[in-house]
Design a protein around this nucleic acid. Sequence first.
RNA 1: UGCCUGAUGGUGUAACGGUAGCACAACUGUUUUUGGUGCAGUUUGUCUUGGUUCGAAUCCAGGUCAGGCAACCA
Length: 551
Amino acid sequence: MSEEKSLNFIEEIISQDLASGKYASILTRFPPEPNGYLHIGHAKSICLNFGLSKQFGGGTNLRFDDTNPAKEDIEYVDSIKADVKWLGFDWVKECYASDYFDQLYAFAIKLIEKGVAYVDDSSAEEIAQQKGTPTVPGTGNAFRNRSIEENLTLFAAMKAGEYEDGAKVLRAKIDLASPNMHMRDPLLYRIKRAHHHRTGDDWCIYPMYDFAHGQSDAIENITHSICTLEFIPHRPLYEWGIEQLGIYPSKQYEFARLNMTYTVMSKRKLLQLVEEGHVESWDDPRMPTISGMRRRGYTSDSIRDFCERIGVAKRENIIDLSLLEFCVREHLNKIAQRRMVVTNPIKLVITNYDKGEEILHSENNPEDPNGGTREVPFSNELWIEREDFMEEPTKKYFRLGPGLSVRLKSAYIVTCESFEKDAAGNITTVFATYHSESKSGQDTSGIHVKGTLHWVSAKHAIPVELKEYDRLFSVEDLSNADGDFKDYINPNSLKSVAAYAEPALANDALEAHFQFLRKGYFYQDTNSTKGKLIFNRTVTLKDTWAKEQKK
RNA sequence: UGCCUGAUGGUGUAACGGUAGCACAACUGUUUUUGGUGCAGUUUGUCUUGGUUCGAAUCCAGGUCAGGCAACCA
C-alpha cells in the first residue's frame, strides 16, 4: 500500500468531488479544433482526460471545437480520430460544437431577451479601441443601449445573411471597466461566410470560442472541463455564460501545457514547417506530431508512459527530450526484434574459414526468453562497420585492430591478422582468422574478448536504406531564443544512409519494431516497399562509448 | 502601470505544519556474446526578506523573477 502514487491536483479535486457525493461519476472531454494534426502536447491532454475518466469511473467525449470554418477541415477530423484511437483511447461520444449551432443560437436569443447581449455595428478596430487597455477602462458606445426588440431583429437579420462579413457582431453586455479584459463585453457571434466542413453553407454567423466551449460542456453535462493555463482569464466568462443561461454547471480547471526541448509545440508553427517545406508533411518523422512519432516508430505505450511520468501541474515546464527517448527505449528494448545491419561497411575476410558458408542462429530478443531465434548465414566474406576497425587502436578500444580479437555476434571469435588500403589510404579489407572451437553457444576455446561486433555475410546481404533523424531544432528552448524559430532549424536533422542488412529482414512483418544491433531502434517507413526497404531510426541506443570518445 | 497564474537539484514531479523523496539527465563501479540491458552507488535543490510556531517547502506579509490577458482565433 505504501506504493500508492500521490495524486496530482486535478485527481485531488476529482476524488474529493466523488467522495463528497457532488458527482456519482465524471465526464471529461478532449476538445481539439480540427485545424491541424495532434502533437505530443495533445497526447498529454488526451492521457489526462481519458486517463482520469478511466481512473475514476466515467467517460470522455471527443469533441471537435469546430466554430471557425475558415481554418478547419475534414482531413484534420479524420487524423485526430485516428491518433486518439492509436493512443489507445475510446470516447463515449463523438461530438461537434457545430451540432449545437441551433442550440447556441437559441442561447444567444435568451441572452438578448435578458438584456445582457447586444448587436454592435462597430468595426473590429473600433471595438478594440473601445475596450481600452489592461490599465485603462473601456468605454461603451451607442449600440450598447439598443432595445431588446431591436437587438432581436438585428440578430435575426445577421443570421439571415442580410449583412456583410464583419458588419455587425453580437456582444455580451458585462462590464467595460472589468480588470479582466475578457469581461469587457466579449464577442459572442461574428458574421463569416465560409464553407463549414459539416454544416456547409447553412450558417453565416458562427459563435466565438467563449460562446461555444462552456456551452458545449454544459450541453454534454461535462463535469470536469480541463484546459490549459492560457484559458484561466476566460474562466469568469465561462461561468458567466453558465449562470446567465442557467445550464449545467460544468467546471473548468487549468493545467500547464507541455513544452519540450529542441522542438516547437504549436499548431501554427508546425503548419508553417509543413507549408514552407522544412519538413515533408505533418507525419514527417521529425515532427512532434502523433502521426510523425508513429511513423518514426514510437509506440503508443511509450507515449502514454511519457505522459504519465511528466506529471500534471500548474507551473510552466520544459521537458527534456531525453525523457521521451528514455521511455521509448525502455519499451522498445522489451519488444524489438534484434537484427544485424551494417552501414559504413568494410570487408572482413576470414582467411582460414573453408566451409564456404553455414547457417547460424541468433536470438530475436535477449529480453524475451520466448522470443525465439532466427537463421543468420555466415561465410568467409563479411561486412563490418568501418568504425569497428582501427589501424592503431587506442587503449580502451575493444574492437578490431592488428592482432586484436573480437567475438562476431552469434558466430565465432576472430583475430585480425592484416589489412589492406587503397591508394587514398582508406582501409578496404581486413583479414582475420577464426577460431573454429569458439562457435557461439558451444565455445570451448577458452578465449575471452571484450568486444562483440555485428556483421552481415557479404553474399547474403540485402541493401536497405536507413533514415537517421536528429533533433529538428538546434537550441533547447525555442521560447527563449531570439528571432524567428525557423532560424534554429537543424540543417542535419535527416541523414539517409545506405546499408547492408541480414536477409531475415526481408521476410519480417511490416509493423515490427526492430533493434539493429549496436545502432538503434528502427521502424519501417510508410514509403518502404519489398523491393526497396526503408527504415526510420526511432532512437539511437544509449552510447557510452561515444561519450567516452568525446573526452 | 491593472488583473490573473506560478516559483523545490540540470529537467520534471512529490512531501497537504514534523526525516526534502522519486524519475530522467550527469558521473562511479559491476554484470553482459549489443560499449545495449540489468544491478549497486555518487553528485546537485525549497526565489528573497520578515513574521506566526517547539517546529515552515508548506501558514501570513512585503519584495524579486517568470508566464498569461487588450484576435470578428481556439
